[in-house]
Protein backbone atom coordinates (compact mmCIF):
# COMPACT_ATOMS: atom_id res chain seq x y z
CA UNK A 1 0.00 0.00 0.00
CA UNK A 2 1.57 3.27 -1.03
CA UNK A 3 0.13 5.33 1.78
CA UNK A 4 1.24 3.13 4.64
CA UNK A 5 -0.54 2.47 7.89
CA UNK A 6 -2.59 4.51 10.32
CA UNK A 7 -4.17 4.21 13.73
CA UNK A 8 -7.57 5.64 14.60
CA UNK A 9 -8.15 6.58 18.23
CA UNK A 10 -11.88 7.18 18.62
CA UNK A 11 -12.25 8.70 22.07
CA UNK A 12 -16.05 8.36 21.86
CA UNK A 13 -15.61 4.58 22.18
CA UNK A 14 -12.94 4.63 24.90
CA UNK A 15 -13.69 3.42 28.44
CA UNK A 16 -10.16 4.20 29.70
CA UNK A 17 -9.67 0.56 30.64
CA UNK A 18 -5.90 1.14 30.25
CA UNK A 19 -5.55 -2.08 28.30
CA UNK A 20 -3.57 -0.12 25.71
CA UNK A 21 -1.32 1.49 28.32
CA UNK A 22 -0.44 -1.84 29.92
CA UNK A 23 -0.28 -3.83 26.66
CA UNK A 24 2.38 -1.42 25.42
CA UNK A 25 4.41 -1.98 28.57
CA UNK A 26 3.96 -5.74 28.34
CA UNK A 27 5.01 -6.04 24.73
CA UNK A 28 7.94 -3.65 24.97
CA UNK A 29 9.20 -4.89 28.36
CA UNK A 30 8.93 -1.39 29.77
CA UNK A 31 9.11 -1.09 33.55
CA UNK A 32 6.33 0.31 35.69
CA UNK A 33 7.51 3.55 37.30
CA UNK A 34 6.91 4.84 40.81
CA UNK A 35 3.96 7.22 40.88
CA UNK A 36 1.84 9.08 43.43
CA UNK A 37 -1.89 9.62 43.71
CA UNK A 38 -2.31 13.37 43.21
CA UNK A 39 -6.08 13.48 42.81
CA UNK A 40 -6.67 11.92 39.40
CA UNK A 41 -7.15 8.50 37.83
CA UNK A 42 -4.38 9.35 35.39
CA UNK A 43 -1.00 7.85 36.12
CA UNK A 44 1.76 8.30 35.14
CA UNK A 45 1.22 12.02 34.68
CA UNK A 46 3.32 12.14 31.53
CA UNK A 47 5.25 10.22 28.91
CA UNK A 48 8.76 9.09 29.75
CA UNK A 49 11.40 6.80 28.37
CA UNK A 50 9.33 4.05 29.97
CA UNK A 51 5.80 5.16 29.13
CA UNK A 52 4.97 5.41 25.45
CA UNK A 53 1.19 5.03 25.65
CA UNK A 54 -0.64 7.12 28.21
CA UNK A 55 -4.36 7.34 28.89
CA UNK A 56 -5.09 10.91 29.90
CA UNK A 57 -8.15 11.77 31.99
CA UNK A 58 -9.84 15.18 31.94
CA UNK A 59 -13.02 16.00 33.80
CA UNK A 60 -15.27 19.00 34.11
CA UNK A 61 -18.88 20.14 33.93
CA UNK A 62 -20.92 20.70 30.80
CA UNK A 63 -23.08 23.73 30.20
CA UNK A 64 -26.04 21.83 31.63
CA UNK A 65 -24.15 21.23 34.87
CA UNK A 66 -23.64 17.53 34.21
CA UNK A 67 -20.14 16.12 34.57
CA UNK A 68 -17.99 15.02 31.66
CA UNK A 69 -14.95 12.78 31.75
CA UNK A 70 -12.82 12.63 28.67
CA UNK A 71 -10.31 9.87 27.98
CA UNK A 72 -7.41 10.48 25.63
CA UNK A 73 -5.20 7.47 24.89
CA UNK A 74 -2.15 9.55 23.98
CA UNK A 75 0.70 8.30 21.81
CA UNK A 76 3.14 9.44 19.12
CA UNK A 77 1.27 10.65 16.06
CA UNK A 78 3.79 9.18 13.59
CA UNK A 79 3.45 12.33 11.58
CA UNK A 80 3.47 12.34 7.80
CA UNK A 81 6.29 14.89 7.99
CA UNK A 82 7.64 14.43 11.51
CA UNK A 83 9.43 17.56 12.81
CA UNK A 84 11.31 15.45 15.36
CA UNK A 85 12.82 13.37 12.54
CA UNK A 86 13.89 16.49 10.71
CA UNK A 87 15.53 17.83 13.85
CA UNK A 88 17.31 14.57 14.61
CA UNK A 89 18.50 14.13 11.05
CA UNK A 90 20.00 17.59 11.29
CA UNK A 91 22.32 16.27 13.99
CA UNK A 92 23.03 12.66 13.16
CA UNK A 93 22.50 10.20 10.33
CA UNK A 94 20.50 7.09 11.19
CA UNK A 95 19.04 8.50 14.38
CA UNK A 96 15.52 7.96 13.17
CA UNK A 97 14.01 5.41 10.82
CA UNK A 98 11.03 6.35 8.69
CA UNK A 99 9.75 2.99 7.60
CA UNK A 100 8.74 3.07 3.95
CA UNK A 101 6.02 0.48 4.11
CA UNK A 102 4.16 1.70 7.16
CA UNK A 103 5.34 5.28 7.68
CA UNK A 104 6.28 4.43 11.28
CA UNK A 105 8.74 6.86 12.86
CA UNK A 106 11.24 4.93 14.99
CA UNK A 107 14.15 6.31 17.01
CA UNK A 108 17.49 4.49 17.13
CA UNK A 109 20.35 4.44 19.66
CA UNK A 110 22.07 7.22 17.76
CA UNK A 111 19.63 9.71 19.25
CA UNK A 112 21.78 9.72 22.38
CA UNK A 113 24.09 12.18 20.68
CA UNK A 114 21.32 14.63 19.79
CA UNK A 115 20.36 17.62 22.02
CA UNK A 116 17.12 16.34 23.52
CA UNK A 117 15.33 19.63 24.24
CA UNK A 118 15.57 20.62 20.59
CA UNK A 119 13.85 17.42 19.56
CA UNK A 120 11.21 17.63 22.27
CA UNK A 121 10.29 21.20 21.51
CA UNK A 122 10.01 20.45 17.81
CA UNK A 123 7.07 18.14 18.46
CA UNK A 124 3.66 19.87 18.52
CA UNK A 125 2.26 16.97 20.59
CA UNK A 126 5.12 16.90 23.14
CA UNK A 127 5.91 13.23 22.59
CA UNK A 128 9.68 12.60 22.53
CA UNK A 129 11.31 11.62 25.82
CA UNK A 130 14.80 10.59 26.85
CA UNK A 131 16.20 7.83 29.01
CA UNK A 132 18.05 9.80 31.74
CA UNK A 133 20.86 7.23 31.97
CA UNK A 134 21.55 6.19 28.40
CA UNK A 135 20.38 9.47 26.82
CA UNK A 136 18.67 7.44 24.11
CA UNK A 137 15.38 9.00 23.02
CA UNK A 138 12.22 6.96 23.33
CA UNK A 139 8.65 6.90 22.13
CA UNK A 140 6.09 4.65 20.51
CA UNK A 141 7.48 2.53 17.64
CA UNK A 142 4.07 1.63 16.21
CA UNK A 143 5.16 -1.90 17.21
CA UNK A 144 7.01 -2.07 13.91
CA UNK A 145 8.35 -5.54 14.69
CA UNK A 146 4.85 -6.87 15.28
CA UNK A 147 3.67 -5.33 12.01
CA UNK A 148 6.56 -6.92 10.14
CA UNK A 149 5.40 -10.24 11.51
CA UNK A 150 1.77 -9.87 10.46
CA UNK A 151 0.58 -8.77 13.88
CA UNK A 152 -1.05 -5.51 14.87
CA UNK A 153 0.30 -3.03 17.43
CA UNK A 154 -0.17 -4.20 21.00
CA UNK A 155 -2.43 -1.28 21.92
CA UNK A 156 -4.78 -1.84 18.99
CA UNK A 157 -4.95 -5.54 19.72
CA UNK A 158 -5.84 -4.93 23.34
CA UNK A 159 -8.60 -2.38 22.87
CA UNK A 160 -11.97 -4.03 23.60
CA UNK A 161 -14.30 -1.38 22.19
CA UNK A 162 -12.47 -0.58 18.96
CA UNK A 163 -11.34 2.79 20.25
CA UNK A 164 -7.84 2.05 18.95
CA UNK A 165 -7.87 0.55 15.47
CA UNK A 166 -4.93 -0.16 13.16
CA UNK A 167 -5.09 -0.43 9.40
CA UNK A 168 -4.28 0.85 5.95
CA UNK A 169 -4.24 4.61 5.96
CA UNK A 170 -6.84 4.98 3.25
CA UNK A 171 -9.27 2.78 5.12
CA UNK A 172 -8.59 4.57 8.40
CA UNK A 173 -9.19 7.96 6.81
CA UNK A 174 -12.47 6.74 5.34
CA UNK A 175 -13.52 5.29 8.68
CA UNK A 176 -12.67 8.54 10.44
CA UNK A 177 -14.71 10.59 8.02
CA UNK A 178 -17.72 8.34 8.36
CA UNK A 179 -17.53 8.30 12.14
CA UNK A 180 -17.19 12.07 12.47
CA UNK A 181 -20.24 12.57 10.24
CA UNK A 182 -22.21 10.18 12.45
CA UNK A 183 -21.03 11.76 15.71
CA UNK A 184 -21.85 15.25 14.50
CA UNK A 185 -25.55 14.35 14.75
CA UNK A 186 -25.23 14.32 18.56
CA UNK A 187 -21.98 16.25 19.01
CA UNK A 188 -21.72 19.18 16.61
CA UNK A 189 -18.14 19.82 17.74
CA UNK A 190 -16.97 16.32 16.72
CA UNK A 191 -13.79 16.28 14.67
CA UNK A 192 -10.83 14.19 13.54
CA UNK A 193 -7.67 15.99 14.70
CA UNK A 194 -5.04 16.93 12.11
CA UNK A 195 -6.05 13.98 9.95
CA UNK A 196 -4.00 15.07 6.96
CA UNK A 197 -0.80 15.54 8.93
CA UNK A 198 -0.61 12.53 11.19
CA UNK A 199 -0.90 8.77 10.95
CA UNK A 200 -2.38 8.45 14.44
CA UNK A 201 -5.70 10.26 14.13
CA UNK A 202 -7.83 11.17 17.14
CA UNK A 203 -11.59 11.60 17.01
CA UNK A 204 -13.05 13.83 19.70
CA UNK A 205 -16.57 15.06 20.39
CA UNK A 206 -15.57 18.36 21.96
CA UNK A 207 -12.86 21.01 21.85
CA UNK A 208 -9.53 19.12 21.79
CA UNK A 209 -8.17 21.46 24.46
CA UNK A 210 -10.63 19.98 26.93
CA UNK A 211 -8.95 16.59 26.47
CA UNK A 212 -5.31 17.64 26.68
CA UNK A 213 -3.39 20.78 25.92
CA UNK A 214 -1.30 19.02 23.23
CA UNK A 215 -4.18 17.01 21.73
CA UNK A 216 -4.07 19.11 18.56
CA UNK A 217 -1.18 20.79 16.78
Amino acid sequence: MPNGKSILVDTSLCTACRGCQVACKQWNNLPGTKTKQIGTYQNPQDFSAFTWKLVRFAEGKNGNGKPYWYFFSDMCRHCMEPPCAETIQGFVKGGVIRDEATGAVVYTEKTKTVPFEKVRSSCPYDIPRQNPKTKVMAKCTMCIERIKNNMIPACAKSCPTGAVVFGDRSQILAKAEKRVAELKKSYPEAMAINAEDVRVIYIVTDDPQKYWKHAAA
Partner: peptide
Protein backbone atom coordinates in the same frame (compact mmCIF):
# COMPACT_ATOMS: atom_id res chain seq x y z
CA UNK B 1 -8.77 -4.00 15.79
CA UNK B 2 -7.31 -4.02 12.31
CA UNK B 3 -8.23 -2.86 8.86
CA UNK B 4 -5.11 -4.44 7.52
CA UNK B 5 -4.54 -4.96 3.87
CA UNK B 6 -1.91 -7.37 2.56
CA UNK B 7 1.48 -6.90 4.10
CA UNK B 8 4.40 -8.98 2.94
CA UNK B 9 7.93 -9.05 4.27
CA UNK B 10 9.33 -7.94 0.94
CA UNK B 11 7.44 -4.66 1.07
CA UNK B 12 8.93 -3.66 4.40
CA UNK B 13 11.83 -1.69 3.02
Amino acid sequence: GTLIGGLTLSSLG
